[in-house]
Design a protein around this nucleic acid. Structure first.
Lengths: 341, 341
DNA sequence: AGCGATATTGCAAACGTTTGCAAAAATGGG
DNA sequence: CCCATTTTTGCAAACGTTTGCAATATCGCT
């Protein structure tokens, strides 16, 4: 039985209308609908019946204004160093999916915003200063580390996904990228690679740490690690990688890609160039996206626990909203050996 | 110069505080900050200066309550027939990314909600009846076609991504899945396949139409099309497909996968079984996700214009918010021939 | 200087809830 | 049946903006 809800015949738009119908005061209706308060069961039932009958829902804006809390968490994705990159990056989106699941479970809604910090000096403040969200999750530090530090000084309910630096002031959840880099390089060395390169853009702190870890291990073996700067923009990535691989096949026998997506592109280009992976070129990725299992050969990679990360982020954020102080969390990544190294 | 914003020393939290500081009335401040109104330039500058100095932003909840509009679009993903599926499905997330880009550009924020209609009879109403969004985008009809029809009768600003049926009442944007199915089957036949199967779950209207189109073409060639029911849940999908492929290699030489993701899984399992694609088994996918270019061999697939779809959705929704009536949009998919068929 | 016209401002009433406090009703015990 | 509790309700003041209307300043002219 579809509820009749034409715009012109909804006599009961406000809690007061409903109160009149039920013969009680607005306050009582509010309490009845809120459920938890102390209102006579009979009254509550009557009110609920009328509400159902008219398809009435209390206006959220009024409620939020009055209660000074919104039940909404902002999720913001700064696109600093990769202006061309849309929100469509697989890793971000996977994390976003998990965040959505996690927040939904805790009864929060999720408000998504994509910003290009470069074009807009203060990209975070309009979001947090205006009472439209109870807290904010920043997905990726991009090149905005310092700005995040500043904001964290004045705004508590914020958790960032990204790289942890000693003594930083904003609360962060992320993988131990340095360790991840080390694991990757150890694997490349163990697989017999001698001349290696890092494929990725070391401007983002996360990637820089991966490079750094890999570099340390390489040095400890007396080997060197070059840098092949590649960007993540979905369009154009392929051609960029194509160029890099042409160079790579001449000079290297082991590649550490900053991201599974990059590794995937490398794999494709290497095949086009007729190079066998792993025989002629070892390759290790980072993330362990679902696709990594499906490539040919399946991708050896460093696994980040995205779901666990999302859980941690939400948990920390809720504690911060409740007024607690929280420490950052650094999660150890793990090596997943498959077919490419 | 970081703005000092410790919680205890923000003397100016409301427009009234600011008004007092500036020696004007709250109304004037409101107008000045809104920018467009008729307020003396000098006054406006003074007010803006003070606002900047104190990092003040007008409270959005109050503003929205008063103006009766929110600047927020709800995006809701019903997970009806795939309860296990998280929001993490690649196609949905890609569409979501484009929607985010598009809405941001038009000045709207995006509120994301994931629901499991089965567990919650009216999953859409609480979202739309409560004044917290100006309009809603439903991503995928799942098995909720009828419910969407009902809701559409009483709530105008809604656009759905999905399959169009003759005479339906909710406004929908989507691909011509029937045509897509035809294209896929024509390609399989042209590539020489004789015994074919559809891999996917025909409960979702989109998939049913793809199957139907393919089936029609098969019949016109005097061939048959079997159905291999497979589900999209990320976990467990691989094992499910593994079982299906074991059967498939015995009985078929052509597969039409409802989704690139499924096609990818098929490809992987077929390789494990030592079957050559496309020599021994032709394979066509659907979506043309970026990954489709990266597989080995690259995937022949039916391309949906996800970005164009997102643009259309947003455009239609804005027109509906403005009170216009709108027609549904059905976009023609295109065949992309690569290496698997 | 005075007058009308115009550009700015102030006033105060919404927007629709929630909630502390006090009043009223119900309950229980003697 | 009355009084002391305990439940339920009603009242009215917020929450922080926006905006129609009226009041005041400002300006250009004669």
């Amino acid at each position: 039985m579809p509820v009749d809800r034409k715009p012109d015949d909804r006599p009961v738009r406000t809690i007061t209308d409903l109160a009149k119908l039920a013969g009680v005061s607005p306050g009582t209706v509010s309490r009845a609908l809120a459920g938890n308060s102390l209102v006579n069961d009979k009254t509550r039932e009557k009110i609920e019946a009328i509400a159902r009958e008219h398809g009435f829902r209390p206006n959220q804006m009024a409620s939020r204004l009055r209660r000074q809390k919104t039940g909404v968490i902002g999720v913001i994705i700064p696109l600093g160093h990769e202006q061309k990159q849309q929100v469509s990056d697989t890793f971000f989106l996977t994390l976003l999916g998990h965040l959505a699941d996690e927040l939904t479970e805790k009864g929060y809604d999720l408000m998504l915003r994509r910003v290009v910090p470069a074009s807009n000096e203060d990209w975070l403040d309009p979001f947090i200063g205006s009472g439209m969200i109870d807290g904010v999750i920043v997905v990726g530090q991009s090149d905005q580390f310092n700005h995040l530090e500043e904001v964290a000084d004045g705004y508590r309910p914020m958790v960032v996904w990204g790289q942890h630096r000693e003594g930083q002031r904003h609360c962060v959840v992320g993988s131990d990228n340095l360790l991840g880099g080390k694991l990757a390089m150890q694997r490349l060395v163990a697989a017999g690679a001698k001349r290696m390169a890092f494929v990725g853009d070391a401007n983002a702190p996360e990637f820089a740490a991966r490079y750094s870890g890999a570099s340390q291990v390489a040095q400890s073996f007396g080997l060197t690690l070059s840098e092949l700067p590649a960007h993540l923009a979905t369009s154009g990535m392929t051609t960029e990688i194509a160029a890099l691989m042409k160079e790579a096949v001449e000079n290297y026998d082991g590649l550490f890609a900053a991201t599974d997506l990059l590794a995937l592109a490398c794999l494709g280009e290497l095949r086009k160039l007729g190079r066998n992976v792993p025989e002629e070129m070892k390759l290790v990725g980072f993330d362990d996206l679902p696709i990594a299992q499906q490539t040919a050969p399946p991708l050896t990679t460093i696994r980040q626990d995205i779901g666990g990360g999302a859980r941690a982020i939400v948990q920390l954020l809720l504690r911060r909203i409740a007024g607690e102080e929280t420490e950052s969390i650094v999660m150890p990544p793990t090596l997943v050996v498959r077919g490419t190294a």
